[in-house]
Amino acid sequence: MKTMTRKTALAALAVAPVFGYLATRKTTETKPATRPIRREPFRAGYFPNVAMQTHEGKTVRFYDNLLKDKIVVINFFYSRCGGLCSPVARNLAQVQKLLGGRVGRDIFIYSISLDPGHDTPAVLREYARNRGIGPGWLLLTGRPEDVELLRRKLGFTDPDPVVDRDKSQHAGIVRYGNEALQRWAACPGEAKPEWIAKSILWMDWPKAMKKGA
């Protein structure tokens, strides 16, 4: 994996100023990190603050408790999905290991059930136990209309109504983002776990905003 070692090297290099280019950057360009970023339109547009139940039996608000000020990883799944969802779940388990102690601290993984009628918190708890899902990774369920709203808002949809009705079609993508920085992207859930983990770390805080450092 040449590229990966390269990236690690780059991350290390990023600390050292490069031939005065950093020094010549305008001060206005280094300041915005400390300025509050205008998030309201995105919150209002994308992130309904619906109530969700976690596999741990807690009730949480989607925006207030799950997204705000966090680096998050979001995918959709359902416990009866079988083989179609397994590769993604396996990958996310690897990703959780790769990200180590940060999962649960400032990085959170959320898997939202597309089958909320069946996937009660108890069913999800069982699913989590069987798969060794650790702290910082929440399996979520909720009222069907809220889950549907989230699915649409977060873009896990297909314009073809037949495809859209097929739950398994929405279980392939993993979204990752940093809510505070408004950086969002997606990668295939079947990508290599190393790449998914690396992608999530692209969302990391700029030095000025680093938490718990």
Partner: peptide, 16 residues
């Protein structure tokens, strides 16, 4: 090529 993009993306964009 020199990357001088800011942290604040104004809603979208990756400074990389």
């Amino acid at each position: 090529n020199i990357n001088e993009l800011p942290d604040d993306n104004g809603g979208f964009g990756m400074p990389s």
